[in-house]
Design a protein around this nucleic acid. Sequence first.
RNA 1: GGGGACGUAGUGAAGUGGUUCAACACGCCGGCCUGUCACGCCGGAGAUCGCGGGUUCAAAUCCCGUCGUCCCCGCCA
Length: 594
Amino acid sequence: MADLKRTHYCTDLTEKDVGQEVALMGWVQRRRDHGGLVFIDLRDRTGLIQTVFNPQEDPETHQRSHAVRSEYVIAVKGRVRPRPDDMINEKLKTGRIEVFIYHLRVLNTAETPPFQIEDDIDVSEAIRLKYRYLDLRRPSVQRNLLLRHKAYQVTRSFLDQEGFIEIETPVLTKSTPEGARDFLVPSRLNPGQFYALPQSPQLFKQLLMVSGFDRYFQIVKCYRDEDFRADRQMEFTQIDIEMSFVDEEDVHDITERLLATVFKELLDIEIPRPFKRLTYAEATSRYGLDKPDTRFGMELKNVTDIVAGSEFKLFSQVAQNGGVIKAINAKGQSSLSRKDLDDLTDFVKIYGAKGLAWIKINPDGWQSPIAKFFSEAEKEALIRALDVEAGDVLFFSADTPKVVNEILGQLRVKLGRALNLINTDEYDFLWVTHFPMFEYSQEEQRYTAMHHPFTAPVEEDLDKLETAPGEVRARAYDLVLNGHEVFGGSIRIHRRDIQEKVFHLLGIGQEEAEEKFGFLIKALEYGAPPHGGIASGFDRLIMIMTGADNIRDVIAFPKTQKATCLLTDAPSKVNRQQLLELAIRLDTENKKEN
RNA sequence: GGGGACGUAGUGAAGUGGUUCAACACGCCGGCCUGUCACGCCGGAGAUCGCGGGUUCAAAUCCCGUCGUCCCCGCCA
């Protein structure tokens, strides 16, 4: 290698380099061996270039090129030549040139890979993850990680220019109640005691505001020991931001400008600002969900008043018992088959629906198991309320508002996707604001914080804290992109008395509050400025920007749904000595033998 | 904790009780080939049908269990 130094990346070379001697290094994408002429497509992280081995160039080098195989690592030296006109490959960036090789060195051989190193391969994800280092050679995966890299850089430089200071917070920290399940790390020096991995640096960034840092950010790993989803891993990355002396508008503004910059620099897309806004109440009422995909319509309409007096017992009874009846109109979809409708019924049952009432608007009349219960006047009213035309299909749900919204909200998204109502090139940002402060948990028989316990209540709702906690709105906001929550934050409580009141409401007693959050309460006493912030689901954002349909495609070494790493086989057992040092004895009797 | 889908050569996949049932494609190995770029042509190797048990004269195929991957509900302040 001493005498061979790489001069270019493969796709650095252009027609301008014709005649130059170059040295390239990379992996063998494919060998096309004609016996005489041999072509080897050489790949590095930039892409491909065709190298040519001609016996007239150097007989020995040509001879040795026969032995080269896929994914061998080779170094070559040769001269750049233009391709004859009829041999130009428009599919390659370097397709107008090729390199005639007179020196070949095999730097390493390779086993035949378990799958081909190229895009659009048809191979199970389990195999890809087991050989992730090979999977990561594929251009599409490299593109994702490159975009992710650029997003870090643009974020850092933007926030730096805006006066934000990047400060690292501990990874080994204190376990706190509320929120997700903690990952625990045993302390060897303090037997029987544990650190927790941060679910977010929430408390530390608030303390940094008390310290006067004023504008903080961090690109930081967070850990939540909960079950996985397509857009959820237990270990994920946040862009974490906190600012002092600000209100909601300030946080929205910095977030919007950050995103505008990131989208401009990475995708060359101008995203219109300011972003749309809906209150939580509006979002759930019109779209059923607190993270609505607003790239298409099909809004939920409340038809309770119209059908409350109808002959259809189910509707009239629900109305009588204080429930609601809502409907959505799938325009022009009356070609949905009976089976489609049955499948949709099964789908909504996942979300607690007992059934799904539908009406097909055929040109010759209404087709539906329930249409016969409606009077002409009621039909007329439905037509007006739902903008009904021939060819439409209406779906109804009747239950409590919470259940109805969930059911129709999920159905709406399902239909939007299935019926191709969504423009997938669109990036549709939406702020959802004024979340409820608390949610009543039937399971725990108490209120829980909808955002987190440090979120400030809306000023004018302060007096309801004691009288009607369920009605108190929080100064919390989520940023929704195409139906995914990509940022979430709030203005925080900066007064001790309010913080204590909120803890109390959450059923956290004075003693517990002191033990778990004493340091925060204390800090609030020492001149805590008003402050607030926001944090992103960075992986999710990159997922959407790359068009990936799951989060694993934008993480270099992701875990499976069962929280294992197929590459390293983590997690794994540890030896007895390690456990002894940690004063840990296993009790796996009731668990599966592992 | 629960619901659903899947598991057959290196990879993808056909086959759902019976006599070529272990196809096909890509990849791999060997041979031929001086303009290919998804090279082509000829030949070849490669599968205890995820694993364990059961039913049967007979199981990739039916039953039970188990392991693994994915999607979803619960969970994710």
